[in-house]
Computed example of a mutant assay.
Amino acid sequence: MSYQHILVAVDLTEECDPVVKRARALAEGTGARLSLVHIVEPMAMAFGGDVPMDLSQLQQQQFDQAKERLEKLLAKFPGLSRDDAHLTYGQPRQEIHTLAKDNGIDLIVVGSHGRHGLKLLLGSTSNDVLHGAPCDVLAVRLKEASAAEKAKPQDDIPGSTAF
């Protein structure tokens, strides 16, 4: 079976590089179109006592940071089209499934940390994407970070999902 359109879900950290590389190799090997997606999860309404806090400015900053990181990722992997790079709000499982259905995706590629217990095979988001997916799903095993890498401070995007 030859894939025609591959969607790779990225968390916009350097950990996603092997996932993009694997998806790109598959796309090049089959002549498939390659699309990227990153989902920014909405911030829930927070309450400080009885006074609701408006998180819209923080949500916009989160989206802007994700947009910048997506641009850096596209620059790192020449040949990936901005037209095929999707950045959206929502729940990862739902957004990925909807994007796959609406765009004729026949393979979704996600990263898998493969930690322990039920997450031995897939991370929680990867597992969510697998269940109910409208097409094949490939989980790319991610290496566990070394002790030095774990100690290194990261500028994570708040609310972003690691796949």
Rank of each mutant, 00 (worst) to 15 (best):
Q61L: 11
V137A: 07
H116T: 15
Q94F: 09
V51P: 00
A85I: 14
G132K: 09
P42H: 08
I105H: 02
M43S: 13
L73G: 06
P52S: 02
G49H: 12
L118F: 13
R69I: 11
G111S: 12
V137H: 05
G123N: 08
L80C: 08
D106G: 07
L118H: 07
L99T: 02
Q60K: 11
L118G: 05
G48W: 06
S126R: 07
P52A: 00
L99G: 01
V40M: 06
L87R: 03
K67Q: 15
A44D: 10
P78R: 07
V129R: 05
V110R: 00
Q65Y: 02
L80H: 01
D50Q: 06
Q62P: 00
L118W: 11
T88H: 01
Q65N: 06
G104P: 10
V51Q: 07
S126W: 02
L99Q: 11
L80R: 01
D136H: 13
S112D: 00
D64R: 14
R115I: 14
G117W: 02
E68G: 09
R115T: 14
Y89S: 05
G123H: 10
L87C: 05
L122Q: 01
Q94K: 07
G49P: 03
D84I: 00
F63W: 12
G90S: 05
E95I: 05
D54Y: 11
R93W: 05
M45F: 12
D128Y: 03
S56L: 13
R82C: 04
T125M: 02
R115A: 05
H113Q: 14
S56H: 10
F47Q: 13
G114Y: 11
K72M: 09
V129G: 02
M45G: 07
G48M: 08
V109M: 06
L121Q: 02
I39N: 04
P92Q: 04
V110E: 01
Y89I: 13
A100P: 03
K76L: 09
A133I: 13
L118T: 10
K101R: 15
S124E: 02
S81R: 08
L58D: 07
A100F: 11
G48A: 09
D136M: 09
R115M: 10
A66C: 10
A133R: 05
D83T: 01
S56T: 15
R93D: 02
M45K: 13
L107Q: 03
A75F: 06
S126P: 01
D54E: 09
Q62Y: 06
D136A: 11
P92C: 06
Q59C: 04
N127M: 13
L58W: 09
D102M: 09
I96K: 04
G117E: 00
L120G: 07
Y89A: 04
S35T: 02
E95Q: 12
D54M: 10
P92H: 04
Q60T: 14
H97F: 07
N103I: 12
A100S: 13
D136G: 08
H38Y: 09
G49V: 11
A66F: 12
